[in-house]
Design a protein around this nucleic acid. Structure first.
Lengths: 94, 94
DNA sequence: TAAAGTAGTTTATTTTATAAACCAAATTTT
DNA sequence: AAAATTTGGTTTATAAAATAAACTACTTTA
């Protein structure tokens, strides 16, 4: 009847991050922060969780002298997101 | 860009309960428990939250001699659910 | 060189989700 | 008919999550 909702994706901020990363090649920390409106602390934590789950890859480098964290979605992440979409539909589609 | 997800509905069990109640006139505690697979304790708590939010109405009576709790969705609940559906779509529809 | 800004991380707090333990009444078993 | 079990829940305790505040380290500006 109802499919299970992957708890790692069933989170407003993590879902937003994944949704953004699905539509771009990659996105840096500042960009994700602006688009989501999240605080830096919250975003940092959630990015970490997504990375540890293998749903995104995170590269920490520098743009000039300033630190820059770049994220992109993994194949595993795409698959998990698609599964989540199917699952949530089981609750909202009549 | 992303719409806010009503935290009261952004919960697997509460969403399942609301989804069921949308499609039936009313449902009792035992029926909801069977369909959702939730424990009685968890279901009890979540029903309470939905009721306090005004999203469902709860009637406690008896069927013969056994207690029976009957739930049905309110207009407010329908509206909130529909808004949630629109909101979640902003994350999952490309 | 002091103040303010940037790009984050770590820590602490509040909220949630969930299950375990419990309760009262009804039913079944012995 | 007493004891055990089941039914239909509620309350309480615990684990997990979300979030913001505080902090770090470096850079730019005044």
């Amino acid at each position: 009847m109802f499919k299970e909702l992957n708890p790692l994706l069933h989170s407003e901020l993590r879902l937003a991050v994944m949704s953004i990363l699905l539509s771009v090649e990659s996105a840096d920390f500042v960009y994700l922060k602006e688009l989501t409106g999240a605080t830096a602390g919250n975003l940092s934590v959630q990015i970490d969780k997504l990375q540890k789950a293998g749903y995104i890859s995170v590269e920490k480098g520098f743009k000039g002298k300033m630190p820059r964290t770049t994220c992109s979605i993994t194949q595993e992440g795409v698959a998990a997101f698609e599964e989540y979409v199917e699952a949530i539909k089981s609750y909202i589609i009549k």
